[in-house]
């Protein structure tokens, strides 16, 4: 039996603005199994990054979690942890590679120190030489040259920075790595390299991975299973192949159609406004999530 690394149950997130409260995530549920990669797909504003931040409890005001549970390793509900307990779980169990590689590193701190401070926060009294060697190995593992060790972020390219982030996230061998748009703002070739690095690391360290993105092509490269998200709701979940070959929800169908494929040689289409509105409207009505085939769930409006 595969154990669940992460079990998200009916998670809701709201943003309070002065005018009204906006429901960004509306009671979503999903699981990630040991060693599995789940791709969370959705357009910008769909609530996928909010979901990730809610799991990590890094939501910034005015965002707040209104209800739900986030069970890690079948035992702890992340949402009930005290700050102190939460700090212990972070990076050791739950690591993050953020969106936008440009700004995720401290511009005034050398790379080695940025990796080291995360390690030192959780591992007492490290031998300095060992620590340096360990960080060196991490960097080697993500395919970065040795000189990166003592460089500043601005001296690295976007792809290198993202690989530093991956190395950093992997430094304490966490059970789950959340990669939020890990390849956005990178050129196509670099995207592939970064994606490959992510895969390698995951395999090597036997982590689970939650990849968040809008690019179904990237998902196709990384994910075992995908969850499609729109307007704060997961409309379809299923094994990658199954979703790609037989998308059930209208939105998924459009997404899959939009995916460029060498076989199909089809031009990129975007969703026309009318269809998009239709989908949004249908999601406002009550709906039921049904399992169409095994492990393939779809939201069906009643």
């Amino acid at each position: 039996m595969t154990s669940k690394v992460l079990d998200v149950k009916k998670l809701s997130v709201a943003y309070d603005t002065s005018l009204k409260t906006i429901q960004a995530v509306k009671g979503i549920s999903f699981t990630i199994n040991q060693g599995e990669t789940l791709g969370l797909i959705g357009e910008s504003g769909s609530g996928k990054t909010t979901t990730a931040m809610a799991i990590l409890r890094l939501l910034q005001k005015p965002g707040r979690i209104t209800s739900g549970e986030v069970i890690l390793n079948n035992s702890t509900d992340l949402l009930t942890l005290s700050e102190r307990e939460l700090r212990k779980v972070r990076w050791t169990e739950l690591a993050l590679v953020t969106q936008g590689s440009m700004n995720s590193l401290n511009p005034t701190m050398r790379i080695n120190k940025q990796i080291a401070d995360g390690i030192l926060a959780h591992r007492e009294k490290q031998n300095r030489d060992e620590l340096e060697e360990y960080i060196g190995n991490l960097l080697k593992m993500v395919g970065l040259p040795e000189r990166v060790f003592s460089q500043y972020p601005h001296e690295l390219s976007g792809g290198m920075k993202q690989r530093v982030c991956i190395a950093m996230a992997a430094s304490l061998n966490p059970s789950l790595l959340i990669a939020d748009e890990p390849t956005s703002a990178l050129d196509v070739i670099t995207q592939r390299i970064v994606a490959q690095t992510l895969m390698d690391i995951k395999e090597r360290l036997n982590m689970s991975l939650l990849v968040i993105g809008h690019d179904i092509g990237l998902m196709a490269q990384l994910a075992d299973r995908v969850a499609v998200m729109i307007d704060g709701v997961i409309v379809e979940t299923g094994a990658l192949q199954e979703v790609l070959t037989s998308p059930q929800h209208l939105y998924t169908q459009i997404l899959v159609d939009a995916m460029p494929s060498i076989k199909r040689k089809k031009s990129l289409t975007s969703i026309d406004e009318q269809t998009r509105q239709k989908i949004s409207k249908s999601l406002l009505k009550p709906f039921e999530v049904k399992e169409v085939t095994q492990g393939h769930w779809v939201a069906i409006t009643q």
Partner: peptide
């Protein structure tokens, strides 16, 4: 900033984040 949020995700102590980040 993203790097401050990442520092939080790293489980660093808040005061350390304030001073170093």
């Amino acid at each position: 900033a993203d790097y401050v949020r990442l520092a939080e995700a790293k489980g660093l102590k808040p005061f350390y984040i304030l001073t170093q980040y």
